[in-house]
Amino acid sequence: MDGIDVSQWAMSAAQALITAMTTDLWAGARDRFAGLLARRPESAGEVAEELDDARQQLLDAGVTEEAAEETSAEWVSRFRRALTRDPSLVEEIRTLLEEQNVEAPAASGRFTQNFSATGGGIVFNQGTGTQANQVHSK
């Protein structure tokens, strides 16, 4: 998938979904997202209802950052499963992201970070993706 992992695409898709939920263009966006997430075309209506329910819960909560994060978490998982099942969905997600003016994830290359501590200090580092950590003590 162009060096971009499924989780990055899922997070970007969920961000676009949450953005769409808070606009007047929701009906058209809902149908596009439902079609993307439905396992079978005949289940798109059911997914659209779930999306409408999620949108209503978000609106009822006042579209706070906390409510948006909570709503997003559920849909990140759904997008991740859909992409794992069918990686070709990336192109459709890319189109949806463009339509919603959400930036597509960038391909991540390999990079190296070197940290050192002195005087008995400890270095902590957190990142995403596959990490290989080496500890050298003197």
Rank of each mutant, 00 (worst) to 15 (best):
Q113W: 05
T84M: 10
R40P: 02
G119L: 07
L25S: 15
V47W: 00
T19D: 06
G109N: 09
R94W: 05
D24V: 06
R85F: 05
A106T: 12
D24Q: 12
A54L: 03
M11G: 07
S88I: 06
Q100N: 08
G121A: 15
L96H: 00
L36N: 00
M21Y: 02
N133M: 13
E66R: 14
E50R: 10
A13W: 00
F79Y: 08
A13S: 08
G127V: 08
R94Q: 10
R40C: 06
D2S: 15
N101T: 14
L83S: 01
I18S: 00
E65P: 06
G127I: 05
S12L: 02
T128N: 09
T95L: 11
D31C: 04
Q57F: 09
V135L: 12
A29V: 01
E98K: 11
T95K: 15
F33G: 00
Q134T: 13
Q57P: 00
Q126N: 10
V47M: 06
S77A: 15
E42L: 08
T130R: 13
R32W: 02
E46G: 10
A14P: 02
L58R: 04
S88T: 15
S108T: 09
G3L: 08
N101K: 12
P105A: 08
T95W: 07
G35Y: 03
E98A: 13
L36W: 00
T112Y: 08
D53A: 14
A73K: 15
E70N: 10
V63I: 09
H136V: 14
R78W: 03
R85E: 12
G35P: 03
D5F: 02
T95N: 11
E50A: 11
E66F: 09
S77Y: 05
R80S: 12
A29N: 02
A82T: 03
D60I: 04
T112L: 12
E91S: 13
H136T: 14
D5I: 05
G35T: 09
L58F: 05
A29S: 11
T112D: 06
Q100S: 10
R39P: 02
Q113M: 12
S116H: 13
N125G: 08
F111E: 10
Q8P: 02
R78F: 03
A10F: 01
W26Q: 03
T130L: 11
W26E: 01
G129D: 09
D2R: 14
A10E: 01
R80W: 04
G35W: 02
A68S: 15
A13H: 00
M1A: 15
F111Y: 15
G45W: 02
E70P: 02
S12N: 03
L59K: 14
H136N: 12
E66K: 15
F111Q: 12
V123F: 05
E98Q: 11
Q134F: 10
L96N: 00
W26C: 05
A13G: 07
G45D: 07
P87L: 04
Q56L: 07
A27C: 05
T118H: 09
D52T: 08
E49I: 09
M1G: 15
D2N: 14
N114W: 07
R32I: 11
M11K: 08
A82V: 01
T64C: 07
S72L: 02
K138F: 10
R94D: 10
Q134P: 00
A14E: 01
Q126E: 14
V63R: 06
